[in-house]
Design a protein around this nucleic acid. Structure first.
Length: 594
DNA sequence: GCCGTTTTCGGCCCGACTGTTTTCAGTCG
């Protein structure tokens, strides 16, 4: 019998593998503990993989995913071929499907979920969360052995909060999380017991979106610090509070964790809570081979049982014979091996930025997309304050449905004259005359050569027909980029965080084209874009192409967002030499003409 | 089930916190 099915995407495959891990937990956690870890790791790897599993299968490249070994490859192959895996189905038949929705709620793990679902005979995946909520409200859960009044109450709160947060939306873009962290840090600094305090976790690694805010405090009086913390006025409630750490739910629903440690051992704690989990796990595996054990308290010699403490992170990594690893790199994607060889790249820094290539001023270009709000003069003044030596104005091209190509050329001419007039007055920050030109569906640029000739270069980008298939979209982009004036491809994936998935592109082909033809890919610093993404940058980096870190500012204040583009570039392992706008002006102009 | 610059066999990260417990299980980061 023929069976038609749709390819599963990476998210769905990861979810399936996690369910298999859960089934193993229920069957016999002790016996299968390493399988459980293996399935969870494979799920993590697949979830964060750049390429789709279904594509890798077709290209015979399933073995390129770390954490996916021979057995898992076989299962994935079976999945891609037939849409199911016999071994998985046998396992999953032993656990009630209704338990899975509960696992999305904090404080619900496999054991609790299984117990509730089987004891109360809950079978409907769609209603199970509300069913448990009702049971808790009726006091029926406290009657179960191993459960009590308190856990029943906590369960109810967890469900209510989950249902609330789910409606709001999950992860917070980095800039907003940063602001929340700074507010709490200011509050914590009110008491003298807080000797030092830093953001940790994904915030310190500058991940594009943040799940919860982690803070670390160096103190000799943990109790005073935690007392002050749990009294933070803008909270929903305190989640837990122990001797050395506490966590609360901020009024916007974001979880805030705080950990304390004496300043003498602060280095180990910084390291521990900066993560990532994968980075730390790998580091501890290496440590074990050297017969030492790592924790937030320091490094313990397993033979003598003696604990060594570390005041700084540098000394902690040095004790393992490694270079200090910048937090942005700590994702276990090869950084540990490089640190051992002392060959970590020198990451780009904010102060290396010499200009911004993507600026929308309020000059009336009569564009079809969003116009900028601040005058050219204002933005040039700001550029001077930021220490830039040049600024590129890249307004959207004038609307081509409302203007003839001749009118377009006239508008550009006018803007150029305006720029020249201002430049002769200010004369400190150099101006690059650019435009952000649409690549039309057929791959042609929206404006003709007589207009393009008026520019130093143009950024090109996709603002329409996002749904093309990969082959068509790729050739559309390559054709647009082929124009000699087209030098930067803006916000390459087109995604909007939490809003819109990007379009489908053959990345390897695009990277190769850019490297061979002197085209740069943009790293757009706008908070909802952060595009390219860190993992695509790491992939692109192997092609030795240039990147341009730009703010895409539509108002003068937004020019401060450059730091977030630099964060993404650092997470993509880029150095100053990889970045177009780290070049001096003359070098830049020469590159644009190449 | 995965993995290897001390291993292709024999290992596999570490600790905190809570609740329901008289010594531990479950969950989390």
């Amino acid at each position: 019998m023929l069976c038609y099915y749709r390819d599963m995407n990476n998210q769905e495959i990861a979810r399936l593998l996690r369910r298999v891990a859960v089934a193993y937990v229920i069957n016999d956690e002790k016996k299968y503990r390493f399988q459980i870890i293996a399935y969870q790791r494979a799920a993590d790897a697949i979830e964060s993989a750049v390429a789709e599993i279904s594509d890798l299968y077709r290209e015979n490249k399933l073995d390129t995913i770390p954490g996916v070994g021979a057995s898992m490859q076989q299962s994935l192959t079976e999945l891609c071929k037939t849409g199911e895996v016999k071994h998985f189905q046998t396992l999953l038949a032993s656990v009630p499907p209704a338990m899975f929705p509960l696992l999305n709620i904090p404080s619900f793990g496999p054991k609790k979920a299984y117990r509730l679902v089987t004891h109360f005979h809950l079978t409907d995946e769609k209603t199970v969360i509300n069913d448990v909520k009702k049971l808790a409200e009726e006091g029926k859960i406290a009657e179960l052995e191993g459960f009590g009044e308190k856990s029943q109450g906590e369960m109810l709160k967890a469900i209510q909060e989950f249902q609330l947060v789910k409606n709001v939306g999950q992860r917070m873009p980095l800039p907003y999380a940063n602001e929340l962290a700074q507010q709490i840090i200011t509050y914590m600094k009110q008491i003298p017991s807080v000797e030092e305090i830093y953001p940790l976790g994904s915030l310190r690694r500058e991940v594009e979106t943040i799940g919860d805010v982690d803070l670390g405090v160096g103190t000799h009086d943990a109790k005073a610090v935690l007392d002050h913390f749990v009294n933070y006025p803008y909270k929903t409630r305190v989640l837990d509070c122990g001797d050395i750490g506490a966590s609360l739910l901020a009024s916007n629903g974001i979880r805030v964790d705080i950990k304390t440690q004496s300043p003498e051992t602060f280095g180990a704690m910084l390291q521990h809570f900066t993560g990532s989990k994968d980075h730390n796990v790998h580091l501890r595996e290496i440590a074990l081979k050297r017969h030492v054990s790592l924790s937030e308290k320091g490094i313990k010699d397993l033979k003598t049982e003696k604990m060594k403490t570390y005041k700084t992170e540098e000394s902690f990594y040095a004790a393992l014979d490694m270079q200090w690893i910048p937090p942005e790199m700590r994702e276990n994607v090869g950084e540990i091996e490089l640190a051992q060889k002392k060959r970590l790249p020198n990451l780009v820094e904010l102060k290396d930025m010499k200009g911004d290539m993507h600026i929308h001023s309020s000059f009336p270009m009569e564009e079809s997309h969003d116009a900028g709000q601040s005058p050219i003069e204002t933005m040039l003044e700001k550029a001077k304050k930021l220490g830039y030596s040049y600024l590129a104005f890249s307004e959207h091209n004038p609307s081509i449905s409302k203007h003839s190509q001749k009118e377009v050329a006239t508008l550009i001419q006018k803007r150029n004259e305006h720029i020249d007039k201002i430049y002769s007055k200010i004369n400190s920050v150099r101006v690059v005359k650019m435009l952000e030109t649409d690549i039309l569906v057929n791959g042609e640029l929206a404006i003709d050569n007589s207009s393009l000739e008026l520019l130093d270069a143009t950024i090109v980008s996709i603002h329409s027909s996002f749904q093309m298939d990969r082959k068509a979209m790729t050739s559309r982009i390559l054709k647009g980029l082929s124009h000699p004036k087209a030098k930067i491809f803006a916000h390459p994936t087109g995604r909007l965080i939490n809003e819109r998935k990007g379009y489908d592109v053959d990345w390897e082909q695009l990277f190769d084209f850019c490297a061979k033809n002197n085209k740069a890919l943009e790293i757009n610093a706008f908070p909802s874009r952060l595009d390219l993404t860190d993992s695509l940058i790491r992939q692109a980096r192997k092609y030795h192409l240039k990147f341009s870190i730009d703010t895409d500012s539509h108002a003068v204040e937004q020019m401060d967002l450059m730091q977030y583009g630099v964060s993404v570039a650092r997470r993509g392992w880029l150095s100053k030499g990889d970045i177009l706008n780290c070049m001096e002006y003359n070098e830049l102009i020469e590159w644009l003409r190449r």
